[in-house]
Amino acid sequence: MKTNLSLLKKGQKGIITEFNLDAIPLKLLEMGCLPGNEVQLLQIAPFGDPIYINVNDSHVSIRMETAAEIGVIIITD
Rank of each mutant, 00 (worst) to 15 (best):
L34Q: 03
T3G: 14
K2S: 09
L7D: 14
N37K: 09
D57H: 05
K27W: 12
C33E: 00
Q43V: 00
K9V: 01
I15W: 09
I24S: 03
I74S: 12
L21Y: 10
F47S: 09
G36E: 05
E69P: 03
T17Q: 13
K9E: 09
G32Q: 01
L41Q: 06
I16W: 12
S6A: 15
V55P: 02
P35H: 07
V60A: 03
T66E: 11
A67N: 12
V60Q: 08
L29I: 12
A67F: 13
P25K: 03
A67T: 05
E69A: 15
F47D: 10
L5S: 01
P35M: 03
L42W: 02
S6C: 14
I44P: 07
A67G: 11
L8Y: 13
S58Q: 08
L34Y: 02
L5T: 01
E69C: 12
N54E: 08
V60I: 15
N4G: 10
G14F: 09
M1W: 11
A23R: 10
N54K: 14
S58T: 00
F19A: 02
I15K: 14
T17H: 06
I75G: 09
I75L: 15
G48V: 04
I70C: 11
L26F: 12
I70V: 15
P46A: 02
D57V: 00
M1C: 05
M64R: 15
E38P: 02
Y52N: 04
E65S: 13
K13T: 04
G71M: 10
I75P: 13
L28V: 02
I53K: 07
I70Q: 10
S58M: 01
I16G: 03
G36R: 05
D22W: 06
D49W: 12
G32R: 04
A23D: 08
L42A: 01
F19N: 02
E69Y: 09
I51R: 06
I74T: 13
D77F: 11
P25M: 04
L8K: 13
P50F: 04
L41T: 01
K13Y: 09
L21F: 04
R63L: 07
